[in-house]
Amino acid sequence: MDDIHKRREEKQSDLELINPQDKACFEEGEDRDPDLTTESLGTNNDPVRMYFREIDAVPLLTRGGEAKIGKRIEKSQMGALKALSRSLLVAGEISKCGEKLRRSELDIGNLVELDDHSLTRKGLEKQCQEVLGNIEEITALRGEVARIRAQLGKYRKKTREYKRLLSRLARHRISMARIIRNLKLTSQIHQELVDVIKSTVDRVVKLERESKKLTKLQNSRLKLHEVKKVRLRPRAIDRKMRDIEEEA
């Protein structure tokens, strides 16, 4: 008898934790699922019921919505790749990767995405040679771009020669960027290139801050040895900034 009373008490305590509508189902012995609609959940503080109430308020992602999100992601990735491919700094890093690949210090699979033909040894060697050929073109175009940029400083901006060189510069950079994009670099290499760009930006920011501080110091009273340092340092900063601009 004690066991029977104990079981009844346990059952009664379990029913007290259930929603009144669901409790009626158990008491009447009906075999139906509990009501989990937003109305039945009400303002109950139970975490499970709160979860169902919150997800019920969020619309499900449709097939069209998935397609739109996919296009946006693809567009942003393409934009980032275009920005990277137009940088001389990135071209220089890819040239370094080509040297490592030629010396067998870098695996072709870690540099570019392998195609179906590269599953065989012969196909892998063929793709490796194609990649090296493309990197050689990138290196040559990068050198030509640097040479043209150096020539631009000899002419005034409104002269015909300046415009002609500027047009050549644009064509070479577009060709270089197209080859870089067609390499199909791995995500790891992409991230390394992004890190290089970020590091360069950080260097520029630090140099600009230092330049501003030196400008303020020039207007203040300084000792003789400090005056010399303040005057020489801006020149060094300008040289570093020019070097970074040429690399980028």
Results as ranks from 00 to 15, higher is better:
Met1Trp: 15
Asp3Phe: 10
His5Asn: 06
Arg8Cys: 03
Arg8Pro: 02
Asp14Tyr: 14
Leu15Ile: 07
Glu16Lys: 14
Glu16Gln: 11
Leu17Gln: 13
Asn19His: 12
Gln21Glu: 12
Gln21Thr: 05
Asp22Cys: 08
Lys23Ser: 06
Lys23Thr: 04
Lys23Val: 09
Cys25Trp: 05
Gly29Val: 15
Asp33Met: 11
Asp33Asn: 07
Asp35Tyr: 04
Thr38Leu: 09
Thr38Asp: 02
Leu41Gln: 03
Gly42Val: 01
Thr43Gly: 06
Asn44Met: 06
Val48Phe: 13
Val48Ser: 10
Tyr51Leu: 15
Arg53Cys: 03
Arg53Phe: 12
Ile55Lys: 09
Gly64Phe: 09
Gly65Gln: 06
Ala67Cys: 15
Ile73Trp: 04
Ser76His: 15
Met78Ser: 13
Gly79Met: 09
Ala80Gly: 08
Leu81Asp: 08
Leu84Asn: 01
Ser85Glu: 03
Arg86Leu: 08
Leu89Trp: 10
Ile94Gln: 03
Cys97Pro: 01
Leu101Lys: 04
Ser104Asp: 14
Glu105Leu: 10
Glu105Tyr: 03
Leu106Trp: 01
Gly109Ala: 02
Asn110Asp: 11
Leu111Gly: 01
Val112Phe: 01
Val112Tyr: 00
Leu119Gly: 11
Thr120Arg: 08
Gly123Val: 00
Leu124Asp: 00
Gln127Glu: 11
Cys128Trp: 10
Leu132Arg: 00
Leu132Val: 02
Glu136Cys: 05
Ile138Cys: 01
Thr139Pro: 03
Ala140Asp: 05
Ala140Val: 05
Leu141Thr: 02
Glu144Thr: 01
Ala146Met: 09
Ile148Gln: 02
Gly153Thr: 08
Lys154Ile: 07
Lys158Cys: 05
Tyr162Gln: 10
Lys163Pro: 00
Lys163Asp: 01
Arg164Asn: 15
Leu165Ser: 05
Leu165Asn: 04
Ser167Lys: 08
Ser167Asp: 07
Arg168Gln: 13
Leu169Gln: 15
His172Lys: 12
Arg173Thr: 11
Arg181Ser: 04
Arg181His: 06
Lys184Leu: 07
Lys184Arg: 13
Ser187Asp: 09
Ser187Arg: 13
His190Arg: 12
Glu192Met: 14
Lys198Gly: 02
Arg203Asn: 12
Val205Leu: 08
Arg209Lys: 11
Glu210Thr: 02
Ser211Pro: 05
Lys212Arg: 13
Lys212Tyr: 08
Leu217His: 05
Asn219Ile: 07
Asn219Gly: 12
Arg221Asp: 09
Lys223Asn: 11
Lys223Tyr: 10
Leu224Met: 11
His225Pro: 13
Glu226Arg: 12
Glu226Met: 06
Lys228Gly: 11
Lys229Val: 10
Arg231Cys: 08
Arg231Trp: 14
Arg231Met: 08
Arg233Leu: 13
Arg233Val: 08
Arg233Asn: 09
Asp238Lys: 15
Asp238Val: 14
Arg239Lys: 10
Lys240Glu: 14
Arg242Glu: 07
Ile244Gly: 04
Glu245His: 12
Glu247Leu: 13
Ala248Asp: 08
